[in-house]
């Protein structure tokens, strides 16, 4: 954390493809032009080839951050650069693919026509479009739907088409806003596989998702945003590690056992105790106490909190802060 502003400063990276520095965004809304501070001094760097997940509750500023990066929203102050060029510069977007949240394609176009038009907009020559469109439709599982109007597509099919659109120009950076929204489990797995394959090619991927399990499975690094600030950054393991502890399974717990005296929580059945601080000393003291009370210990295992649990703890702690 930055000592003064509470801003997370990422570690130095030699050649970031995304560089964001002291970024602020304030929206003025309504007749009275009341101000909403969507971003409050965000600093972030993403090296080439990294898969970065952005997490945060609704209104955290995730989508605004991505939109500033793409030049869709203009920053109030600060700097956002793609490949060393200002984020609003169209030439920087030539090497970028984007799948917006709740994207809308014209409903009267077929899947193939949609990709053709968006391919043109991405400045792809005829030959490249002819070669890539059928291949991408095949890869996202829409080959047999290529001449079907987009208006007849389900939400999941729209997401697949959106992904194909984002990959048309073989981008070096792919920005995905809720890529698996509305997609069934098989489709989600397909998208994950596609993202892993992209990662193998050295593509930088930035994902904004509410599905923490998706982030956990795909991302190298995760940023957690809250109220316009990046409050934590690290690998999935690092963030989940903060919730690591022990789980002790017992035959029964005496009524006299007072869980408030220990850094523990009890499962509803009162047949297992979760030791939250993860310190061996705490574990050993607790075992001694339980044995002294005549409790039979049936098993002890390392308890690793999920990213989701870590995320919820972090956000709850932030909400509780004055």
């Amino acid at each position: 954390m930055h000592p003064d502003e509470g801003i997370y400063v990422a570690s130095d990276i030699s050649s970031p493809v995304i560089h964001i520095s002291a970024l602020h965004k304030t929206y003025a809304t309504g007749i009275r032009r009341s101000k909403i501070h969507a971003l409050k001094g965000v600093d972030m760097q993403v090296p080439a080839g990294e898969v970065l997940g952005i997490l945060g509750p609704n209104g955290a500023g995730k989508t605004t951050l991505l939109k500033v990066l793409l030049g869709i929203v203009l920053p109030t102050s600060g700097e956002a650069r793609l490949f060393g060029q200002p984020a609003g510069d169209p030439t920087a977007r030539r090497r970028l693919g984007y799948l917006p949240e709740n994207h809308r394609f014209p409903t009267y176009l077929t899947a193939r026509q949609t990709l053709d038009i968006y391919g043109r907009l991405a400045d792809l020559p005829d030959a490249a479009r002819k070669e890539r469109i059928p291949r991408l439709l095949e890869e996202v599982g829409l080959a047999s739907w290529e001449d079907t109007r987009v208006g007849k597509f389900s939400k999941g099919m729209m997401q697949r088409l959106g992904l194909a659109q984002a990959l048309l120009n073989q981008p070096e950076i792919v920005v995905l806003d809720e890529p698996t929204d509305g997609v069934d489990p098989v489709g989600r797995r397909d998208i994950r596989d596609r993202l892993r394959a992209l990662k193998q090619t050295g593509t930088t991927i930035v994902i904004n998702s509410h599905l923490l399990s998706e982030i956990e499975l795909v991302c190298d690094r995760v940023l957690i945003m809250h109220k316009g600030r990046i409050i934590r950054s690290g690998t999935v393991d690092e963030l989940a590690q903060q919730g690591t502890g022990w789980r002790i399974e017992v035959d029964r717990l005496p009524v006299s056992f007072d869980s408030t005296m220990w850094p523990v929580s009890l499962e509803e059945s009162r047949r297992a105790i979760l030791v939250e601080d993860g310190l061996p000393a705490t574990l050993n003291r607790l075992i001694d106490q339980l044995r002294a009370d005549g409790v039979q210990i049936l098993g002890i295992e390392r308890h690793r909190a999920s990213l989701e649990a870590g995320f919820i703890d972090l956000i709850t702690a932030q909400e509780d802060m004055p």
Binding site: I72, R93, Y98, H103, Y118, L121, A122, V175
Partner: peptide
């Protein structure tokens, strides 16, 4: 959003 993300 999609249109503005294109290189034009």
């Amino acid at each position: 959003d999609l249109l503005l993300s294109k290189p034009l």
